[in-house]
Simulated assay, not measured.
Amino acid sequence: MEIKTHDQIDRSLCGNPVVVEEGRSEVKLECLQSMAADASGLVHGGFIFGLADYAAMLAVNHPNVVLGGAETRFLKPSVVGDVLLAKAECLPSEGRKHCVKVEVFCGEDMVFSGAFTCFVTKEHVLAGK
């Protein structure tokens, strides 16, 4: 399926799409040394959130999709060298509002889960600026 959103995103920071289908996506991210928050190699949660957010955007896959809110849980720490896989699935939508369930795994272990509320706007959020 053609990717219709976030076409200029830095995939080294937000992950590489491996599945993009109607209403779902899977995105893989290798945790790099530049993502470490400290000397132990703990990966900053913002990178994991970015991966999950990107997967949610791809599940909706519309040029004007934006994030409205998210309820998330970090379940286990991630470290440099981990390979994460975000799996996103759209739940039944209400017009322009899309609720997307995202789970992030490191191997068999779930490290993050979230419910993302996305909106498809009539025009790009920066149109006219």
Results as ranks from 00 to 15, higher is better:
residue 1 M to W: 02
residue 1 M to K: 04
residue 1 M to Y: 05
residue 2 E to Q: 08
residue 2 E to T: 07
residue 2 E to M: 09
residue 3 I to S: 00
residue 3 I to T: 08
residue 5 T to Q: 11
residue 5 T to G: 05
residue 7 D to Q: 13
residue 7 D to M: 14
residue 9 I to V: 15
residue 10 D to F: 05
residue 11 R to I: 11
residue 14 C to P: 01
residue 14 C to M: 10
residue 14 C to F: 15
residue 14 C to Q: 09
residue 16 N to Q: 14
residue 16 N to D: 14
residue 18 V to N: 14
residue 19 V to Y: 05
residue 19 V to C: 02
residue 19 V to N: 03
residue 21 E to T: 13
residue 21 E to A: 12
residue 21 E to G: 01
residue 22 E to T: 03
residue 24 R to F: 03
residue 25 S to K: 11
residue 26 E to C: 03
residue 28 K to V: 14
residue 28 K to Y: 11
residue 29 L to S: 05
residue 29 L to P: 01
residue 32 L to T: 02
residue 32 L to S: 11
residue 34 S to N: 04
residue 35 M to W: 10
residue 35 M to V: 06
residue 36 A to D: 08
residue 36 A to C: 01
residue 36 A to I: 01
residue 38 D to G: 03
residue 39 A to R: 11
residue 39 A to G: 02
residue 39 A to H: 06
residue 44 H to F: 10
residue 44 H to I: 01
residue 46 G to E: 10
residue 48 I to S: 00
residue 48 I to C: 03
residue 49 F to C: 00
residue 51 L to A: 00
residue 52 A to E: 12
residue 54 Y to C: 04
residue 57 M to R: 12
residue 57 M to Y: 15
residue 59 A to P: 06
residue 61 N to F: 09
residue 65 V to R: 13
residue 65 V to M: 04
residue 66 V to Y: 12
residue 66 V to T: 14
residue 67 L to E: 04
residue 68 G to C: 09
residue 68 G to H: 08
residue 69 G to W: 04
residue 71 E to S: 13
residue 72 T to W: 03
residue 73 R to D: 04
residue 73 R to I: 01
residue 74 F to C: 00
residue 75 L to V: 00
residue 76 K to L: 00
residue 76 K to Q: 04
residue 77 P to I: 01
residue 78 S to I: 03
residue 79 V to N: 10
residue 79 V to W: 15
residue 79 V to G: 12
residue 79 V to S: 12
residue 80 V to W: 09
residue 81 G to P: 03
residue 82 D to S: 10
residue 83 V to N: 12
residue 83 V to E: 15
residue 83 V to A: 08
residue 84 L to Q: 05
residue 84 L to T: 06
residue 86 A to W: 06
residue 88 A to D: 09
residue 89 E to H: 01
residue 89 E to T: 00
residue 91 L to W: 14
residue 91 L to V: 10
residue 92 P to M: 13
residue 93 S to G: 05
residue 94 E to Q: 15
residue 94 E to S: 08
residue 97 K to H: 14
residue 100 V to N: 13
residue 100 V to F: 13
residue 100 V to P: 11
residue 102 V to I: 07
residue 102 V to E: 00
residue 102 V to K: 02
residue 103 E to K: 13
residue 104 V to L: 02
residue 104 V to R: 04
residue 105 F to Q: 03
residue 105 F to M: 06
residue 105 F to S: 00
residue 107 G to M: 11
residue 109 D to C: 06
residue 115 A to E: 08
residue 116 F to A: 11
residue 117 T to G: 00
residue 117 T to K: 07
residue 118 C to L: 15
residue 118 C to Y: 08
residue 119 F to R: 11
residue 120 V to H: 13
residue 121 T to N: 02
residue 122 K to D: 14
residue 122 K to T: 09
residue 122 K to W: 01
residue 123 E to T: 08
residue 125 V to K: 08
residue 126 L to K: 06
residue 128 G to H: 04
residue 128 G to I: 05
residue 129 K to A: 06
residue 129 K to D: 10
residue 129 K to Y: 11
residue 129 K to C: 07
